[in-house]
Nucleic acid binder design. Structure first.
Length: 365
DNA sequence: GATGCGGTAAACACTC
DNA sequence: AGAGTGTTTACCGCAT
């Protein structure tokens, strides 16, 4: 009777708080780590990052990020993660501990049209539409005047993370199920394994009321994005569940509509155990990008997924039209880049920002 | 206020 | 018989 078509992911009840989930703007519209990442790209081309303009607003306090070194990465407060992880296996773009943090979930307006421009080479470096402009100049020391930065927490002393074992993950059940299935080697899981995956990566559910399992089953049954397939021998009771390929892009784009947990969420236990497995995102990226039949196929969807999860729900809403064009084109299995080099650069920027190695050229260099 | 969506609870049938 | 699984219905809260 109820035709549940997951085209929009509403937030979980009770986690909205007073902060707007969408459209809210942080004082620094880009996460510091992302700014550093962009700055490194600029630096790698022999230039230094001087100032950043976001929607016409100049952000000039990022130069204390020390873009040339990773030290600032280490200084960036990151919550500890209980599930450990093998950081050494992480892809280069993900080898810091940002993946272990949910702090990015509080960053809004992360990628509102990234446009990298340089004084000398504007055309070549233009990636996306101009709401964010990074101006660079030849190697010069950064200005000394600084806007005071918030006190930094030593990397070994994580601050209170925005989520923990006592708070629900900021993902709908659809997204949790999607992540679980996509993380499975066969991209198919029995419901019991879906439970296990969710508990493993979001320990909140370990002690959550039993009703959530009902919700998972309810979601599997009603959501057209999930399909039941014949159970493989030995699976036992129940069937294997898969993601309908035709609805996969819907789920991926749904990540962009996930709510952002309000910063005022109470954090009674700062164990950070609610953070997803630090390997989840790069793994998911590889998994989503795996078994492609042609270079680039599926990777942009993976990039979109990773961006949405890594830099915060809502990030896809903030991508410029070109990025959505690329994503939707990929969702339709079209990789013709009719938009020309601009579109290709946009696509590759997505990959780079998501930490997925492109088959072709790096985008931001 | 209407509508859509996601979460939750519950009932029921089916399978192991 | 009991537990697990899958389906369906109903209701609620929130956002648009």
């Amino acid at each position: 009777m109820i035709g549940l078509n997951i085209t929009k992911m509403a937030p979980m009840r009770g986690e909205r708080g007073g902060s707007p989930a969408r459209g809210a703007r942080a004082s620094l519209p880009l996460p510091r780590r992302l700014i550093r990442q962009i700055a490194r790209h600029v630096a790698s081309s022999g230039r230094s990052l001087r100032r950043l303009e976001v929607s016409g607003r100049v952000i000039d306090n990022f130069d204390d990020l020390d873009v040339g070194s990773d030290e600032s990465d280490m200084e960036t407060p990151q919550p500890a993660v209980a599930c450990g992880g093998n950081a050494g296996n992480l892809p280069p773009a993900d080898n810091d501990d940002d993946l272990t943090s949910l702090s990015w979930l509080q960053d809004r307006n992360l990628l509102r049209g990234i446009n990298l421009t340089t004084k000398s080479d504007t055309e070549d470096s233009k990636i996306l539409r101009n709401e964010v402009i990074i101006k660079t100049e030849s190697k010069t020391p950064p200005p000394t005047a600084r806007v005071p930065s918030p006190p930094r927490t030593p990397c070994k002393a994580p601050p209170s993370p925005p989520a923990n074992t006592h708070t629900k993950p900021p993902y709908s059940f659809s997204c949790l199920i999607f992540m679980a299935i996509e993380a499975a080697p066969a991209r198919a899981l029995p419901v019991k394994e879906i439970y296990a995956w969710i508990i493993r990566h979001f320990p909140y559910f370990k002690h959550a009321p039993q009703g959530w399992k009902n919700s998972v089953r309810h979601n599997l049954s009603l959501n057209k994005c999930f399909h039941k397939v014949a159970a493989a021998p030995g699976v036992g009771k129940g069937s294997l569940w898969t993601v309908d390929p035709q609805h996969r892009s819907t789920l991926i784009q749904a990540f962009g509509r996930q709510p952002i947990p309000p910063p005022e969420i109470e954090v009674p236990d700062s164990g950070g155990k609610n953070a997803p497995d630090p390997q989840l995102f790069p793994y998911l990226a590889r998994r989503l990008a795996a078994d492609t039949t042609e270079p680039g196929a599926d990777e942009y969807l993976a990039a979109a997924t990773v961006l949405a999860m890594k830099y915060g729900p809502g990030v896809l809403d903030q991508l410029p039209p070109e990025a959505h064009l690329v994503i939707s084109r990929c969702a339709r299995d079209e990789h013709s880049y009719s938009g020309g080099g601009e579109e290709r650069r946009t696509a590759e920027a997505l990959l780079n920002l998501a930490g997925i190695t492109s088959h072709t050229q790096p985008a931001l260099s």
